[in-house]
Simulated assay, not measured.
Amino acid sequence: MGAKGEFQRQTSAFRDRVTADGSSGFPAVAGRYHLYVSLACPWASRAVLVRKLKGLEDAIGMTVVDPERDERGWAFRAGRVTPAGQADPLHGWSYLSEAYVATDPEFDGRVTVPVLWDTETNRIVNNESSEIVRMLNAEFDAVATNPGLDLYPEDLRDEIDALNDRIYDTVNNGVYRAGFATSQEAYEEAVTALFESLEWLEGLLADRRYLTGDRITEADVRLLMTLVRFDPVYVGHFKCNLKRIVDLPNLWAYTRDLYQQPGVADTVSFDHIKTHYYATHPTINPTRIVPLGPVIDWDEPHGRG
């Protein structure tokens, strides 16, 4: 936390890269890498979705941690009735923190997802979601079943980067800055910037189907993972309640458009999402009661075609 009660996100610790030609020391080959993710976490869900869209399920293994995180961090727990996480298939670990310590015995920061693990060197390659997404998009085409999809095309990179910068600061991270604020000033500053950006996006999407035009890009993937959590969690739990996404017609139709794309809904678990947020933040929700609602029709025709 900052001096005036503002939430400050930790910088990712592991920043090596997998490359198609192996020049980084981590060649993009099938079966070598494993993703540790949470279906509750929007940052990890970016990687889950890109893995799905690129057709990398057979090339890169994936394990889902338990949605309830406690003071020991993300856990591997199998057997819960619902929503369930998974056991660690590689090492039998109980907590993801064991992967961090195995990579760096001196690591004492916050354990985050996603994690891209290298089974050959037995270490974390990268735990920065934006960089993992870029690697999945571009470096594994030789082993992908959908190599033709490019979410970061060269002709749109400047526009995508500019969109990402604003959306990350005020929307993706903005909801956390509002939810974790410990002063009225920090909360109001975050919420004001958040809804200014949502109104800006509402206007932008009046004239284009997706953020950069008629193609789905990385910018859409990154925004979507916040939008699907907004009404079920951020409106109430994080006090981002000036408006709901369903109150912004262009943004709501855009969210449904993306959600209804083939394979996208398969990567979204509202059980994991709601269980994680409402049961993991005792200072915000000390009763840990998980609400039943809201009732949202994600299959309502979007009319954006």
Rank of each mutant, 00 (worst) to 15 (best):
D58H: 02
T182K: 14
P42V: 00
A206F: 03
Y100V: 06
E6C: 00
R123E: 00
S24G: 08
G2L: 13
P27T: 09
C41M: 02
R222I: 03
Y36N: 02
D214K: 07
R288Y: 06
D220V: 07
R209G: 10
N241D: 15
V246R: 13
L194S: 12
R304W: 03
V175F: 01
P67R: 13
D88W: 08
T287A: 14
E128W: 00
R69I: 14
H237D: 04
R288V: 00
R177K: 15
D141Y: 03
F76A: 11
W74T: 10
E139T: 01
V246I: 12
R110N: 05
T267S: 09
R209N: 05
I124D: 03
S23K: 15
G148W: 09
E68S: 11
L242S: 04
R177S: 07
M225T: 12
L35I: 11
D141G: 02
A181P: 07
H237K: 05
W43P: 00
Y36D: 00
A44K: 01
G79M: 10
W298Q: 14
V228Q: 11
N122C: 08
D70Y: 12
D271V: 07
S94F: 04
W252Q: 05
R123A: 05
S197I: 04
G303Q: 03
N285C: 08
R46I: 04
E6Y: 02
P291V: 09
N164A: 03
L227M: 15
P89T: 14
T226I: 00
P301S: 11
Y36I: 06
I289T: 15
Y234S: 06
F195R: 04
E139L: 04
